[in-house]
Each structure stands twice: as structure tokens, then as C-alpha cells.
Amino acid sequence: MALPALPVARGRNTGRPRAGMSAIERSRRRLYWPMLLPALLLMLLFYVVPILYAGWLSLHTWDGINELTWRGMDNYVQLAKDPIFIGSIANTLKILFVVGIITFVFAFALTMVLREMTGRKFVRSVLFFPTLINAMVFGIFAGFLFSPAGPVNKILALVGVQDPPKWLAQDNLFNLIMIVMIWSATGYFTTIIMSAVDQIPAYYYEAAGLDGAGPWTKFRHVTLPLAWDVISVCAVLWTMSSVKVFELILVFGGSTAQAPPTSTWATAVYVYQAAFGGGSREFGVSAAAAIVSLALVTVLTIGLRRMLRREAIEI
């Protein structure tokens, strides 16, 4: 606003000699390290050091008890040849792209519908809520609802479907997992996109409407370009969360004391199973898989940002 003098008085220039600093700036400097250090130390201890340690472990064979032995890149070679690991990477990519794209389409469709709807706040809250619940609960729900004698099949039988699909058969399991993910993620992304769309002034739509734009044209030429920044952030967020998917897969089917079928594993499940999933503890392999998933999330995030940025300029 009309306060141009204040930022100057605050002393924006970092290279300024001490004497030129305001009192507030000086006391801020004195408190800088004491206030920052605890968080910074935790960051080092729980992020920086563990990542470096994982990189180092991934070059060794270790069961957590015996001596650590050097293995070079062999863990990575082993992973590259392991069909289960390749499958889990493929599943992670499926979650990222298939679930991601469908979720975004739904989120946009919902945003468009909700924009002109009564009770939108209520609807948004109800759809948002699954985001806050441990995904395990949905895994158990799905296992129960889709069990052979479960409610879904009973309802289908009422409608006349006598031979319902085997929902929980190995071949269908991952698809069902993806459907549950779409359902639980849609509300979250709808909320984010809606908050961006709400900031678009209504007269843009009016103007487009006067020019004869239909709903699709308005969406394509008003909503999409103006909400683009948020969409690209959402894409990055989704990339990060899709690599983390764990609980849902772990319990899916609702009744497995052992590991879930390997055809449903994603990278997080693979890392967990290699290190702690019964049998021998293979910390080296697990760490290598972890490093691969970190590399994956890094490459995908950077790639997506690049891709989406270019599009934004195009519009």
C-alpha cells in the first residue's frame, strides 16, 4: 500500500554495514541462529544424513546384524533384473499417470459443476474428508464391500447380474486400488483447483459468454490458463504423493497377514518388504530401491515442471 518508506527502514540490503541497520534488523540477526538451529539440525538428522546414508547402504549388502560388505552397483543391477521391482515401478507410474490424469479430469469436472451449485461448501467438505483418513481404512472397506458375498455383489444380484467380476482376484486388485485412490484424491485436488478458480473474476466468464463461448470454450480459454500455476503445483504434489502410496496397498483385500500380492506392489511397498517384510533383511537392496524411488520422484518432478511451464507460456 502507501508505505514505501518502511521496507527501506527495515534494511533490505544484506551487505549493509552494521551501523546502517535498524534496531529490529539487528535483534533479528542476533536471534537468527538460535531460532533456526533446532529445526535445521532435525532437518539434517532426519533428511540429509539419512539420504546420504541410504546412498551408502545401497552399495552394500547388510542384514542389520552381520558385517556390512561392499557390493558396488550390484544391488542396482539386481533390482533392474527383478521383475517384482520393475513391476512396482510400473505400478507407481500407473498411479502417477493413470490415477493422476483421471483424478484431475474429475477434479476439473467437479470444479465446473460446483462453481454454479447450491451447497458447494458442504459438498466440497464431504468430498475433501477422505484425504484426512488413513488410507488403510479404505482398503479394509473395499475388501469388505467387494468380497464375494459382500454388499456390492448383493446389489448387483438385485439388479440381475448373476456373475459379477471377481473384484479381489489378483488381476483386478490393482485396478480396484487405483479406483479407491481416485475416489479419495479427487476431493483434495478439487478443493485446491476450486480455490484457484474462485479467484478468477466472474466478468471474464461473462465476457467470454457474450462472445458466444460455450462451457468447454470457457473452460479451455478462461479457466485453464488462469488456473495453470495451481494446476502445475498440483501435478507436482501428486507426483510426490503417488510415490509414497503405501498403506492402501498393504491392507488391500482386507485379510492378508502376509505381504500383499506382488503384482500390486508400488515402490514404497517394495522398500518396506525388502527390509522388513519377513525373511532375511536386505537393507542394501531396500536402500537401493529407496534411492531409485527418490531419483524417480526427482526426475518426474523436474520433468513435469518443465513440461507444464512451457505450456503455460504457450497460452
Binding site: 532426519f46 533428511y47 544424513v49 539419512p50 539420504i51 546414508y53 541410504a54 547402504l57 510426490m240 510415490v243 509414497k244 503405501f246 515402490t267 514404497a268 522398500v271 518396506y272 527390509a275 537393507f283 531396500s286 536402500a287 529407496a290 534411492i291 524411488s293 527418490l294 520422484v297
Partner: peptide, 9 residues
């Protein structure tokens, strides 16, 4: 950073 990267370390 996904949690699984930090799990074993």
C-alpha cells in the same frame, strides 16, 4: 522426499 527413502537409514 518420500518416507520410504528415509525408512531404513
Amino acid at each position: 522426499v518420500p518416507g520410504q527413502v528415509l525408512l531404513v537409514p
